[in-house]
Design a binder for these strands. Structure first.
Length: 477
RNA sequence: UCCUUCUUAGCUCAGCUGGUUAGAGCACAUGACUGUUAAUCAUGGGGUCCCUGGUUCGAGCCCAGGAGAGGGAGCCA
């Protein structure tokens, strides 16, 4: 007999048909009712065991966490709480789970505890929902770009340039670390290393992405990215996934349009595809919020927040306008910011970003045209000589979810800027070649995938939306 | 990395001004019950009070150092 997934079983009505299901026991109540879950959906299938005809030894082995296989008749439920239930004919224990040692109990566990048993947390309602949503979002990203005929490009994981300027790097080597080969000067001799030069894990696929965009017009990458920053926050990981589209002939406005479309598309997809999961997560968040004092609670539920984000245009403001808004805000005048806004040119702190998104506009905000001093070398210089064509998308509760720009395609301006910022032009000769041979205006951005998952699931710690988080001092599993 | 809070049973937490044998709920074991929904009831077992050192007649509690975790900041996606 062919196994049926529980999601499918729950969609049918009980017609006394014989079926086979397999899954893991969530709880065994009353020596009679098994809540069985196989990960296909958040809801469990209730198995009704006849304890009179089932051997005592088998009953004892039906414990939380055990894996079982059940053949039985699917009927309309005799009890409340579910529409159908499976009356057990034969039950086989596929894998025992020692109740004394299995750490998951049929009760609420703290997210911190579950993080320590990340290998088992998939078997909880919350993480089941989170990772099904994550899957839907990842698929939707590909669907969006494929429908638009973008080319999915695999940029390298190992990189030899440290000129990308996007943070601390993880060194890649096969040297004996305790005893690396040295030159006559006593320095580490990288000529003898695997690649013959120092190499690192990638911090961005953007520069390579630009090369491909100068051939395919529209490309995107979606892969892991590594930053060795000593960041201990709820929104940073040492290993995370990033989506980086790069489009020839796109100016900054086209870039913003695409980013906004992408975000709305994938959120809509996950919302439709995983409605029950998001419903569950929304409810979970509501319970969580009840623990907080009234003032800290959010005005909108998760579902309302997602709807609101989908139904409204993102607010587009320039850095200069944002500074004016912040400077004139009562918050600034009453000196409620830790860092007061006094002059044009300062970098915005997260308290300022939060004020703009959560208090002033109350919706996603796209900030554009930042001062060139606080942005990367490759961003296109505006005619005012002060700003660059940058755009950051800020989301409520998350902060920066997208960072992008129109790229500087004019060779002379790019080289000058690189020299000003001490970026070695020789090392990036291949990057500069795109400006030498058939350069064109182009744009792109980076979308932090886990930050997107945070927003859609309503989780608050980024370590809870990636299966096995890598953070400073933590690389378990 | 900085600021801040925390670390007591498998989990969540209480533990008074430093005082005798460190508690509760859940989980687990045993039994009862059997249409339950985190089932219920009874009984029982379960502790390196994060680690190291110090003060004291006496430390879960006070002091110093260390480790880990949460929240906030910086860096960023």
């Amino acid at each position: 007999m062919k196994r049926i997934r529980i999601k499918e079983v729950l969609q049918t009505s009980g017609t006394n048909q014989e079926i086979l299901v397999k899954g893991w026991v969530r709880t065994f109540r009353n020596n009679q009712f098994i809540a069985l879950n196989d990960g296909s959906c958040n809801n469990n299938l209730q198995i009704v065991v006849d304890f009179n005809s089932t051997p005592e030894t088998t009953l004892k082995r039906i414990t939380t966490g055990a894996c079982i296989s059940v053949v039985g008749n699917l009927i309309a439920s005799q009890g409340k709480g579910q529409t159908v239930e499976l009356v057990c004919k034969t039950l086989e224990i596929l894998g025992d789970s020692d109740a004394e040692k299995f750490p998951l109990q049929p009760k609420k566990h703290s997210l911190e505890f579950l993080r320590e048993i990340a290998h088992l947390r998939f078997r909880t309602n919350t993480f089941g929902a989170v990772f099904r949503v994550r899957n839907a979002l990842a698929f939707a990203v590909h669907k969006f770009f494929q429908e638009k005929d973008f080319v999915y490009l695999h940029t390298p994981i190992i990189s030899s340039s440290d000129a990308e300027g996007a943070g601390e790097l993880f060194r890649v080597t096969n040297f004996d670390i305790a005893n690396p080969p040295k030159t006559e000067n006593g320095e580490v001799d990288f000529k003898q290393d695997f690649f013959g030069k120092p190499t690192n894990l990638t911090v961005s696929g953007q520069l390579e992405g630009e090369l491909a965009a100068m051939a395919f017009s529209d490309i995107y990458t979606f892969g892991p990215t590594f930053r060795a920053e000593n960041s201990n926050t709820t929104r940073h990981l040492a290993e995370f996934w990033m989506i980086e589209p790069e489009m020839a002939f796109f100016d900054l406005n086209d870039n913003m349009d695409l980013a906004e479309d992408l975000l709305k598309y994938v959120i809509t997809y996950a919302f439709t595809k995983c409605h029950e999961d998001i419903e569950f997560l929304s409810q979970r968040l509501l319970e969580e919020e009840k623990q907080k004092p009234q003032i800290e609670r959010s005005e909108l539920s998760l579902i309302e927040k997602l709807r609101f984000c989908l139904d409204n245009e993102f607010e587009r403001v320039t850095y200069t306008e944002a500074i004016e808004i912040l400077k004139d805000s009562n918050h600034n005048k009453k000196k409620k910011f830790s860092y007061l806004i006094d002059k044009w040119g300062v970098d915005l702190q997260s308290e300022h970003e939060r004020y703009l998104v959560e208090k002033h506009f109350k919706k996603p905000v796209i900030l554009t045209d930042y001062p060139k001093e606080i942005k990367a070398f490759y961003m296109r210089q505006n005619d005012d000589g002060k700003t660059v064509g940058a755009m950051d998308i800020l989301f409520p509760g998350i902060g920066e979810i997208v960072g992008g720009s129109q790229r500087e395609e004019r060779l002379e301006k790019l080289e000058t800027r690189m020299k000003e910022m001490n970026i070695p032009t020789e090392e990036l000769w291949w990057y500069l070649d795109t400006r030498r041979f058939g350069a064109c205006p182009h744009s792109g951005f980076g979308l932090g995938f886990e930050r997107l998952v945070l927003f859609v699931t309503g989780m608050t710690n980024i370590r809870d939306v990636i299966p096995f988080p890598r953070t400073p001092k933590n690389c378990e599993f």
